[in-house]
Structure formats: C-alpha cells, structure tokens
Design a protein around this nucleic acid. Structure first.
Length: 483
RNA sequence: GGCGGCAUAGCCAAGUGGUAAGGCAAGGGUCUGCAAAACCUUCACCCCCAGUUCAAAUCUGGGUGCCGCCUCCA
C-alpha cells in the first residue's frame, strides 16, 4: 500500500501518515454547534472530512470516525432565550436539520457521534483531575486551566504567550472582570459558574457549565483514548479551541493528544469569509434547491482542502456543467448500484474480483495509479477529480462496448470514494415543468378537437389515462388530475 | 500591533527546482434536416524588482495587493 502524505498543522509540514496502532485509524473532527442552520462553509468541512475518512477506508484502514455535537454552549443558550424556548429544544431542532443536510449531501454518518450533554460527568472528572494535578485552579466557582503549566502552549496555533497576554488585556473587555479570578490573562475556563435558574449542572465547585474546549478533550478520551491519529476541523479552530484542547489533555495525560492535526480552509464570498456573524452565508438548504449534492461536492472537491474557496454563482455553474460530463460518461455503466452511497458495512474497498478486472484494463490501471497518487498527496482532490475527467474522455472515446461499460463502472466506483454518486438528475422534472408539458398536450388536443380530428384528441386523452392522468373537459376548458 | 497564508489564462483552479493538471467559457473541425450531445482541436511562461542555481511559477530578500487568526465562528 502506497503511503499517504498529510500536512500536519502542528509541524507545518507534510508528513508520511503512519497510524499509531497498525491498521487502525482513529479520526476525530469537531462537529457543529447546533444553534442555527448550517451554511456552505460547514458543508465544506463535513465534505472534506467525509472524503478523508472514505479514502482511508478505500486504502484499507480500519477507521473509527468520531464527530461530536456541541449541544450546550452560550450561543445555544442565548438563542433559546431570544426564542423563549429551552436550550435543549433549540439544539434538537438544529441537530435534526444538520442531519437532514448531511444526508442530502451524501455525507456519511460518523461511526460515533457523542454529544456534549452526554459527557458532563467525564468533563467534571477531567477538570477535577487537572486541579488535583496542579494544572488548574478554582476561583470563585470557576475553574481555570493554568497555561503556564503547559509545556509548549501556542505551538499548534503558533502563538507567543507574551503577545497573547498583552493582547488579551487590550482586546477583550470582559477580561477586566475576570482579571480578579485568573492568575494569568491567557488562562481559559474549564468550568464556568452559573446562577440558579440558568442552564447548568452541579459540580464540586457549585452550579455551572463546562468550558467549550473541555468537551472535545473529554469525548476523545472516553471514546477513542488518550492519543488519537488524526484530529481535525476548520482552520479557525486551530486557536484557541484545538490549542486549549491539546494543552489540557496533554497536561493531564502527559502524552500527545493527536499525532496529526489537519485543518480545512474556508469559503469566502466577495473576498470575505462566509460566516454567520457577517450575514453573508447561503444555507445548505437554500443551495440544494438550486444545485444537486454532487454539484456542491464537485465544486468543493475541485479545490484543495487547505486553500480558501471563493464562492460565486459562476463557479457553481461551472461545476454543474462539469458534473454533467461525468454523469454522461458514467451512463455507459448501466450500473444500478449507487456509487456514492454509504452503508456502515461498506468500506469503499473494491472487492478483489472488481479490483482485478480494473487492473487488467491498462487505461484503468493507469487511472488508478494517478487517482491514488493524487489522493495520497495530502488528499489532493482537485487533481483526483481531474483524472476522473480524463477517464470520462476515454470512456466516451472507446468503441468497445464491454470496455466502455467496465470503465464507466470504474468511474462510478472511484467517484464514490469521493462521495459523488454521479446520479443522473437531468431528467428529474419539477412540478412546474410537468404542468407546462401537460398544458401543451391539452392545447394540442384542443387544436385537434377544433379541427374535428377526434382520432388525435382521443389518442391524447387515452394515452394520458394510461400514465395515470385523467383529462376532463369543463365549461372553463380542459383540466387534468392524477387518478 | 503580533502570527499565518495567498497572488497562475476571460473566470474557477492544481502544481513547491527541470521547463505550466483539470473544469467553465470561447474559436475551429467531424457528425447532424435543425439543434443538442459526443469526439478531435486551438487558447498562459505563472503580481513587480533583485538574487541563488546549469535550471525557478516553484528557493532567498525587498515591494505591492488580498485574506485569515489573535474574541464566538467550519
């Protein structure tokens, strides 16, 4: 098996990917905070990690992919307060919506999906252990992590503690109030006190809530262990979220939290980051009304995951047109299985017979090497996709039906590794088009009746009846309904 | 202010030392009643300046422009 090179944020270099424990790979990607609808930027993150886990399985690794749900957080609490509902109701609503979006985008479900609210005891336990170990301290019902107890704090986010200290003092006004409690302005909360009536849990330090970073550390420990292979998320999480997770976990366990740290870049709109605070986002739901899931995925995968994407309707349409070429070529397969579908048992590893058949075809064998070569190179989906187009050309150019069919089947299978279904949606007709087509048929029938051509008019009505549409002549003219 | 990143054809976008992938758009051709599709084909020396090297889009220094992080954020 050829080796994969991954860009590790921690070292700032591409490194050979070697799992800690043989063939097993533990993968943790920070999931959504469910307080609002997801937008294209979130879709990118989920699609990127979906492709990474699919590809690792394709390569034969035994992957455990964990993605958490942050279902308790100040944003959720504040939003719920505005809407006058309970935070858990709000979180559940947006969690369901997130799942629906992911399903629509053909993003495979993670193997394990822990929620923060299920891990309160573990979080409290971890904070207690850190206090016991002298790495954290209690102050006024809060618990803070002592950054000075961390060996290499700032290494992941490439921050200098002294700069952060002065920055923290100047920039964050609320720090003024916390200054009394914190020993050091950079220290961050493991536990925050709350007053009765607010959302919270009882703890050794009184009623309160966990700090944001603690949930991932606790869930990783509980679900995957003290050190995992790959930890990932959006690049904005590098600092402070991942830095702090790393600091607290490593202070407690005295071993690395993750061997490789991978971060995906953002989507910009008009050269500005797409984000909720800027209000320039398109929700996944909105986009799916205009573009298919494959189009969105292809658009995202035509860019390298570490480079920012500039969103524009023009490039979305370019992706839409490009996808049609792949779909047309894949139709030669007459292959009913959904190439991109996900089943928990499916590991994207082609069965031996299929793989052998692909290997015997020289074109496919070369294609395989190119595809794998580009994906091995830090998941370069942009290049992998370019080879899909190359294969599509060879399929269309082939004169041999059996050869064409085999290659088209391969095209679908490899596209499936990227989560592209290549489903032919070109003939999915919406209600508006249906009505217009029926109006046209009824008009032709009226013309025939006006010419006393009852043979034609009856033919139209009888044939429509056969497909379940009954035509009725009323005083206001003809109309129709489904029978 | 500190840190990190980016600048490649009309547009989008790979490529980190050996002479520019791919997609969209556009032009030409084959095919076709017309059209579409399909296939063939044409289309860049890589922001600017200086340097290292036999060789640079790729390395170094400087400049210009843009973006992100440092505060919630995928």
């Amino acid at each position: 098996m050829s080796s994969i090179q991954v860009f590790n944020t921690l070292t700032g270099k591409k490194e050979e990917f070697v799992p800690i424990n043989g063939n097993k790979v533990s993968l943790y990607a920070c999931g959504p905070t469910v307080y609002d609808s997801s937008h294209l930027g979130h879709a990118r993150k989920e699609i990127v990690w979906d492709v990474i886990q699919r590809y690792l399985r394709f390569k034969g690794y035994d992957v455990t992919f964990v993605r958490n749900i942050t279902d308790i957080d100040d944003k959720i609490i504040n939003r719920a307060k505005e809407l006058n509902i309970r935070p858990d109701q709000l979180a559940r609503h947006y969690l369901y919506e997130f799942w629906a979006d992911m399903y629509a985008l053909n993003v495979a479900p993670p193997d394990i999906e822990p929620r923060a609210t299920e891990y309160l005891q573990q979080m409290i336990g971890m904070a207690e252990d850190l206090v016991k170990k002298g790495k954290a301290y209690e102050a006024g019902g809060d618990v803070y992590f002592d950054v000075s107890a961390s060996k290499d704090y700032g290494k992941l986010g490439k921050k200098n503690i002294e700069d952060l200290k002065s920055g923290a003092r100047e920039q964050v006004r609320s720090q003024e109030e916390l200054k009394e409690l914190k020993r050091n302005p950079v220290d961050f909360a493991l536990w925050k006190s709350a007053s009765e009536g607010e959302t919270g849990w009882t703890s050794p330090w009184g009623f309160g809530r966990p700090g944001w970073h603690l949930e991932c550390s606790s869930m990783i420990k509980s679900v995957l262990g003290e050190t995992i292979d790959i930890h990932g998320g959006g690049e904005d999480l590098v600092f402070p979220h991942h830095e702090n997770e790393k600091a607290q976990s490593e202070a407690l366990h005295e071993k690395p939290l993750a061997k490789y740290w991978l971060h995906n870049s953002f989507i910009n709109v008009s050269e500005e980051k797409m984000s909720k605070s800027l209000g320039n986002f398109k929700t996944i739901g909105d986009l799916l009304k205009e573009y298919s899931a494959d189009t969105l995925r292809l658009f995202i995968l035509q860019h390298h995951y570490r480079n920012p994407i500039e969103f524009s309707p023009e490039s979305m349409n370019a992706a839409k047109q490009a996808l049609i070429r792949l779909v047309r070529a894949s139709l030669f397969a007459e292959y009913e299985e959904n190439g991109g579908g996900f089943y928990p048992s499916k590991h994207y590893r082609f069965n031996e017979k299929v793989a052998a058949a692909y290997k015997r075809d020289k074109t496919l064998s070369e294609f395989h090497d190119e595809f794998v070569g580009s994906m091995d190179n830090d998941f370069n989906t942009a290049v992998a996709v370019s080879h899909l187009f190359g294969l599509a050309d060879k399929i269309s150019a082939s004169k041999d039906a059996a050869e064409r069919k085999l290659r088209a089947k391969a095209l679908k299978d490899y596209a499936g590794v990227l989560g592209l279904t290549l489903a032919d949606t070109r003939r999915e007709v919406d209600r508006n088009s249906t009505e217009q087509v029926l109006a046209l048929l009824l008009q032709l029938r009226q013309d025939a009746r006006a010419n006393k051509d009852f043979k034609t008019s009856d033919l139209i009505r009888n044939e429509l009846a056969k497909v379940g549409i009954s035509v009725m002549d009323t005083a206001e003219g003809p109309t129709w309904e489904k029978t």
